[in-house]
Amino acid sequence: MYGLGLFKGLGITMKNLVSPSRQFNIVQYPNRRASPFDLAKVDDQNPISFIATHPIKTLRSLLGLETLVDRMPQHANFRGEEFAWYDRRCTGCASCAKYCPLGIIKIVTGTSGVNQQEGQSYDIDVFDIDIGRCMFCGLCVEACPYDALHMGSGFEEGKYRRSDLVINVDQLKAAEKKPSTWFRPQLTDRGHDPIKGSTADWDQVGRHEKPSLEDQGERWAKR
């Protein structure tokens, strides 16, 4: 009958209001207000004993003062900032610089003797990545023939100046190496997951051999 559709629609919105399975998977970045139950879960206690043992924390959380860190569930393939660069693997061939669509990677190699690699007669003096203009397409990572450059996993690189957004060679060396598994299937095969916090050393990130067709078939059968 004409007019029933309106009430059907009201039913749908009510269903979405009450049904927990229809809710958004909400992430309250960077932190969320924690209820006593959440705090108890973090402390690995049951809620009643938590309330009994931590009355002040319970009160604070009821007033909305207690917070918990909340992060987006990322996949290990996520193409993030904080490039992971391994100077021991880099030969300074500048394939990444050539392949970058925006030309934001600057590499200068020389014989200054400051950053000399083992068994190499020249060194990488400048390796600047201007992530202020970077669009994280990952073509530089794809271009690297020696698996020296990897996408990172983070995304919180806000800075107050554009000039601070240029990552130089020292920062790249000092940074914690959490390479994304993007375009690096060998990392997935070794169980590396940067989102869970695992780091990878320079000798663990190379592709020692290509996965054969049989390997890929095995992986496919597992689905």
Binding site: N16, L17, R22, F24, Q28, R33
Partner: peptide
């Protein structure tokens, strides 16, 4: 917010 499966304002004070 609840109807739209969101949270609605929840940062200032409890709820």
């Amino acid at each position: 917010g609840r109807f739209q499966v969101r949270r609605g304002p929840n940062r200032n004070g409890p709820f």
